[in-house]
């Protein structure tokens, strides 16, 4: 299916003049994004690739990364989709301010986000101190803290994407369902959600990818301990201190795994080419 769609597009371009004006910057843009990747591949220590790859810490960090990024995406879906709906479909007072607040984590450096999380949820944080005093529980340095850091940084991608999809969706279907007597919850589940499913899927993929690459907020808020809070980006950063070759290997592993998953999901979901 997809192959045929592609060739048809090719024919259409060939029929007119080749769009140089767009193609030149497009190729340049692509080259800019791909060149660093090629650099990694060229500098990779292929002779020792296998042995570096089989170190137990690598598997540990990779598993932790995949698990936490997936958990962070699940949490983001649970909280982010309703938030997007609120922004797109209600006349919430101060909606503009809320929308700006949602995008704050996109703007501030993740390290600062991590510090902010510590200020609130740390052992002496605004809220964290009570959890520690009353229950002896403290969030930093746990795997849960990794997920929290990732949700903080990645959820805005999901919210923005879903809100866009909600705005673009035709509201008349929802109105029709309402006149037919459907309740609000029913409309949301049976009409709205299926309509914006591609947007939700795209947002979830973005969110997952961002969570997978999360570094600054994680190392600041969750610390670095192998098997507990050391995700792949942290492992890459620490490997960089001692052996850049190992860092390259780790980066390529992260890249390969995430590309495989993303490409796999894209075909599976939504049918978007």
């Amino acid at each position: 299916m997809r192959a045929r769609a592609g060739s048809r597009a090719g024919v259409r371009v060939a029929a007119g003049r080749f769009p140089w004006l767009l193609a030149a910057p497009a190729v340049l843009g692509l080259a800019f994004l791909v060149a660093p990747l090629l650099g990694l591949l060229l500098r990779a220590p292929w002779s020792t690739f296998g042995t570096r790859l089989l170190m137990p810490e690598v598997r540990e960090a990779l598993v932790l990364s995949l698990v936490t990024a997936t958990a962070a995406t699940a949490v983001s879906l649970l909280l982010g989709v309703p938030l997007a709906w609120l922004l797109a479909r209600t006349e919430l007072p101060g909606r503009r301010v809320v929308r700006a607040l949602v995008t704050v984590p996109l703007v501030i450096p993740p390290v600062v986000g991590g510090v902010a999380l510590l200020m609130v949820l740390g052992r002496r944080g605004v809220l964290g101190q009570y959890a520690y005093d009353w229950f002896g529980y403290s969030l930093p340095f746990t795997t849960a803290a990794v997920v929290v850091a990732q949700v903080f940084v990645a959820m805005p991608f999901l919210v923005v994407s879903v809100e866009g999809a909600l705005r673009a969706a035709d509201r008349r279907y929802e109105d029709a369902a309402a006149t037919l007597g459907a309740t609000r919850g029913m409309i949301f589940r049976r009409v709205t959600l299926p309509m914006v499913a591609p947007g939700v899927a795209a947002g979830a993929v973005l969110c997952w990818a961002r969570a997978l690459g999360e570094f600054g907020a994680t190392i600041t808020f969750a610390g670095n301990f192998p098997g507990r809070t050391q995700t792949m980006p942290l492992a890459v950063y620490l490997a960089m201190q001692e052996s850049p070759e190992s860092a390259v290997v780790l980066s390529l592993v992260l890249l390969a795994v995430s590309l495989a998953i993303l490409i796999g999901l894209r075909g599976h979901w939504s049918g978007a080419p």
Binding site: L118, G122, R123, R124, S138, P140, F141, I219, G223, N224, F225, P226, T229, Q230, Y237, L238, Q241
Partner: peptide
């Protein structure tokens, strides 16, 4: 340790923040 910090100042910050 609770955490292996990537540099000495980061480790010190943990103490400063009481974490």
């Amino acid at each position: 340790p609770a955490t292996w910090e990537p540099d000495v100042r980061a480790a010190l910050t943990r103490v400063r923040l009481g974490e």
